Amino acid sequence: MSEYDHEPIRGLPGDLPAGESILWQGSPEWRTFARSALHTRWISAYFAVLALLGLASGKLVGAAAAVVGGAITQGLLALFAVLVARTTVYTITNRRVVLRIGIALNKCVNLPLAMIGSADLRPQPGDHGDIALNIVGRHRLGFAMLWPHARPWRLAQPSPMLRALPDAQVAASILARACAAVVPNEAMAIERPRPAPARDHGLQGAAA
């Protein structure tokens, strides 16, 4: 039986304490998640190249094997993405960000707003996007525990990530206001994406 089979509030491990309220909830959109987190387009291109090389060298069996292997791999990745979307709930309250994640083993990650030093909004096509949370202070969050809800390549200092959100800009604005209310002297301002060599664009501020 899952820990969340009978959760009192969807996405939360218990009832909200007095004075706490939900500001926003959302889940990943599975197609965007598959493309951005699981890199399905690159994997498709890889198998396509293998198939073309097989055809070019006259190895029809090898080409057919590449096509079949690519189709199976894409099917498994799509299934994984669907399961992640169905089992993941991101919640922003006026006190914390909660990530209910995990397919086979569910877990709940609670991040007080005061721990969020800044956040980076990475836009995706179709008004979708990812929000990476940069945590300040000491914590025990591990990359393996968070994956795939973790910012890529941040192994030493893992950053939780709200992935493939259909309304990423809305969620980012709500998060900014919530953090500003917790730390009134600091404002988390949302910056619109602009051409830059960096891969991530931001939603900066709210130092705890």
Rank of each mutant, 00 (worst) to 15 (best):
V182A: 09
H128T: 12
P17H: 06
V82Q: 10
T32K: 04
N106S: 09
C179M: 12
L55A: 02
G202A: 12
D5P: 01
A63P: 08
P112K: 01
A150M: 05
A51M: 13
R31T: 13
A51F: 04
A180T: 14
F47H: 11
P17Q: 03
L165I: 12
R10I: 14
E29G: 00
A181Q: 11
G70F: 04
H128P: 04
R151N: 14
G58L: 06
R41L: 09
A114F: 11
W153G: 12
W30H: 15
A18I: 05
A78N: 11
L52I: 11
G126R: 07
Y90D: 11
I190W: 01
P158E: 07
R151F: 14
A180H: 04
S27P: 02
V170D: 10
V98Q: 07
M188F: 08
T87S: 11
A51H: 11
T88W: 00
S27F: 00
N110M: 02
M1F: 01
F80C: 06
C179E: 04
A34R: 10
V84I: 15
L16W: 05
A207L: 15
G117R: 12
A181D: 14
Q169L: 12
L38E: 05
H39N: 12
D200W: 11
A71N: 09
Q25W: 03
R199L: 13
A45M: 07
P158K: 08
I101F: 07
V170L: 09
P197R: 04
L53V: 07
P184F: 13
V67M: 03
Y46G: 05
H6D: 15
P8F: 05
Q124I: 09
A104M: 15
